[in-house]
């Protein structure tokens, strides 16, 4: 168990030697995972961060390497590896989303930028305290108190947090600051967590039945339904940028004279230029193809490649889509259409 004050102390102590990323609210109340200077920066009462914590592992703009071509020579310098970091306050849906991203950046070709941050980052999970109208993680088998994927999982119970050590990294973190954690009231904490879990389970407004959805959607590539969805779509990047499992990126040039660097930037399959060839041929030339690709990626392709769901039911796209394209409705419609 750890009290709020002790947790604040923990974050303050961690800041001394680590980059500490936590939900921070900006001047307009928009919460994102941002590096904090003190525990005072943390938006303790946040519900769901607008931008998911993937922004730590896959920053929106990230320098990959620098180069210098002065005098006709070529020198390429990789950017030094990231240091130790702690990401605090990751909700269960976003924990699951990180797990969904891991195999993308691992595999035969290892993405050292992502994997290095994953290895050197301790993920401190935080159970949800409420279910928002767009949330449907439960349909993906996630409970809003699940710690799966966290190194250390915290659940607010009364005026304290019930802390569960789930990995060696989590254990090392607790061992580093033994004075901040106590064993007293652990049983009460466990029961509190169970009660919270039961309470939250009853709060879901959106539930989808995923049975047979992948199989059905795999037969729907040519279905006119996608045109229907695409008519509404304005082709912005909100759904992809706020999606905790979307990982598409561009690599761009940033140079001045002979020196420069290459940056990796978030990109979106919703954008017209995403798949545009130099020849001007575009395999996904209209919104229909782009919308279809996104939903097939979420509901089939990711699963097919990695055996993991490509959606975690965080509800961000549901909440923020300017034209109310709602993936829970899409899933329901897929089951319905002929």
């Amino acid at each position: 168990m750890i009290t709020r004050d002790q947790l604040a102390t923990l974050l303050d102590r961690l800041v001394e030697k680590n980059k500490v990323i936590a939900p921070v609210s900006d001047n307009r109340g928009v919460v994102r995972y941002t590096a904090i200077r003190t525990a005072g920066d943390v938006a303790w009462e946040f519900d769901r961060a607008k931008v998911p914590p993937k922004s730590h592992f896959l920053p929106q703009t990230e320098e990959l390497y620098c180069y210098d071509t002065t005098g006709g020579e070529l020198r390429i310098e990789p950017v030094p590896a990231a240091g130790r970091a702690v990401v605090f306050g990751v909700h269960p849906c976003d924990l699951r989303a990180i797990a969904a991203l891991d195999p993308v950046f691992d595999g035969v070709f290892k993405d050292v930028y992502y994997l290095d941050k994953r290895e050197r980052t301790v993920v401190v999970g935080l159970a949800c305290k409420q279910v928002l109208p767009g949330c449907f993680c439960r349909s993906y088998g996630i409970e809003p108190t699940d710690g799966e994927g966290a190194d250390l999982m915290l659940t607010e119970v009364g005026d304290r947090y019930y802390a569960e050590i789930l990995t060696p990294k989590g254990e090392a973190l607790v061992r580093e600051f033994p004075e901040l954690f106590s064993d007293g009231g652990v049983e009460e904490g466990r029961r509190g967590k169970e009660a919270l879990s039961r309470e939250l389970a009853g709060q879901f407004q959106r539930e989808v039945d995923l049975t047979g959805v992948k199989e059905k959607v795999d037969t729907m590539f040519e279905h006119p339904y996608w045109q229907e969805v695409a008519r509404k779509c304005i082709g912005c990047g909100i759904c992809t940028y706020l999606c905790p499992t979307c990982h598409c990126f561009d690599i761009i040039e940033n140079h001045s004279g002979h020196r420069g660097s290459r940056l990796r930037c978030w990109d979106s399959c919703m954008f017209t230029d995403f798949t545009l060839h130099t020849s001007s041929h575009n395999p996904r030339s209209t919104k229909k193809e782009r919308v279809r690709n996104r939903f097939l990626h979420k509901l089939s392709y990711h699963n097919e490649r990695y055996g993991l769901a490509g959606c975690v039911g965080c509800g961000r796209c549901v909440a923020e889509c300017p034209v109310n394209i709602d993936i829970t409705k899409i899933i329901a419609d897929i089951k319905e259409v002929d």
């Binding site: 993308v104 950046f105 595999g107 035969v108 070709f109 993405d111 990982h247 598409c248 990126f249 561009d250 690599i251 990109d267 399959c269 995403f274 798949t275 545009l276 060839h277 395999p283 690709n293 990626h297 392709y301």
Partner: peptide, 15 residues
């Protein structure tokens, strides 16, 4: 032939 940025199955373009 499809547009590619990473070449290693991560940038999501050439699927």
């Amino acid at each position: 032939e499809l547009r590619m940025k990473c070449g290693v199955g991560k940038c999501g373009r050439c699927n």
